[in-house]
């Protein structure tokens, strides 16, 4: 677009053409930034597309929002894709999307790059909460785990490698080794665990690094000796969520809505969306809607924890 505009300076004819083309692109829904494009109310035929990308933890939720929002505002298309919080943030920093979903906070250097690239500071919205659940196979006799044990399982040079180290024997399996299921490094869940459970230390190499929240739960469900971590919304009948203790002396809490809101579950986190600068027009409307009662019902239906009534946006 920029280049086309540049050549248009030299010739009037080209500029008319470019403007026409630009209008066409926006009308067919290819416009990249609906916030700065013609307002959706301008014409009955104009359609706006919001590009939304990021966290795999949130991809089902974002998809649910997009579908539900279609009913509320038929002229707005929300295109959702996953890839991991890191991928979404990288795209936002480059300015190629409107909204990035993230299950971790943006890092200082990412905010700095965004400011340098686009001249705008990213703005953060909390749109829900999630408890990071520790999953094991449903036949695993283990019911509770401490954060330190999780760290010792996943951390580089961690001491726990066998189920007998945790005092359990997996029924029907001759293998004692813990099969660690983890996430690829672009995942916000991966970074969240590294920061809040491993204390920024590195992961032990050799874990099975899955490309999505759902794959983690699926692999744990088909592997009796596996342990994995993923958002609480992905639980299936084939797996079990462990109760987690912050330290060995504190009580164990299960990842539930009540425990997440009361902040007693030790590894709860906020689900976030980021925009570049203060959101405008359709993007703002969309985020407001997501944070309203209607949007929060989708959060609940996706298995996550909705915002408390006080934090919701008024429609």
């Amino acid at each position: 677009m920029k280049q086309r505009a540049h050549t248009s300076l030299t010739r009037n004819l080209t500029s008319t053409f470019a403007a026409g083309l630009a209008a066409c692109l926006l009308q067919t829904g290819c416009g990249k930034s609906p916030g700065s494009g013609p307002d959706s109310g301008g014409g009955s035929a104009s359609k706006v597309t919001i590009q939304n990308k990021g966290s795999d933890t949130m991809v089902n939720l974002a998809q649910g929002w997009a579908e539900e929002y279609k009913k509320a505002a038929p002229d707005v298309d929300v295109e959702v894709s996953g890839g991991g919080s890191g991928v979404g943030i990288a795209a936002l920093v480059k300015g190629t999307i409107d909204i990035a979903n993230a299950s971790r906070n943006m890092k200082a250097e990412e905010i700095e790059t965004a400011r340098k690239n686009t001249g705008k500071a990213p703005k953060e919205f909390i749109v829900g909460y999630d408890s990071l659940a520790i999953y094991v196979h449903k036949d695993n006799p283990l019911n509770e785990i401490t954060l330190d044990q999780v760290a010792q399982i996943y951390m580089e040079a961690g001491r726990i490698t066998k189920w007998s180290d945790l005092g359990v024997k997996i029924p029907g399996s001759s293998s004692d080794e813990i099969v660690r299921v983890s996430r690829q490094s672009s995942s916000g869940t991966y970074e969240f665990l590294r920061e809040h459970v491993l204390n920024k230390k590195d992961f032990k190499l050799g874990s099975r690094d899955m490309n999505g929240s759902k794959e983690v739960v699926e692999l744990v469900g088909s592997t009796p000796t596996a342990i994995g971590y993923s958002g609480m919304g992905y639980a299936t009948p084939a797996v079990k969520m462990l109760k987690v203790r912050k330290t060995a002396t504190e009580p164990a809490y299960e990842p539930s809505v009540a425990n997440t809101l009361a902040k007693t579950y030790p590894i709860a986190r906020s689900l976030l969306v980021y925009t570049l600068g203060e959101p405008q027009g359709p993007v703002k409307k969309y985020i407001d809607w997501a944070m309203s009662d209607a949007g929060q019902r989708v959060v609940e239906a996706s298995g996550y924890v909705p915002l408390p009534a006080g934090a919701r946006a008024k429609p």
Partner: peptide
């Protein structure tokens, strides 16, 4: 899994898969 295999039941990661999984971020 980033792991030097010792048998055919070990998980591994290939060069191509590593590029595909990480270049985006």
């Amino acid at each position: 899994a980033v792991h030097i295999p010792h048998g055919i039941f070990d998980s591994v990661r290939t060069l191509t898969a590593n590029i595909a999984a990480e270049l985006g971020e």
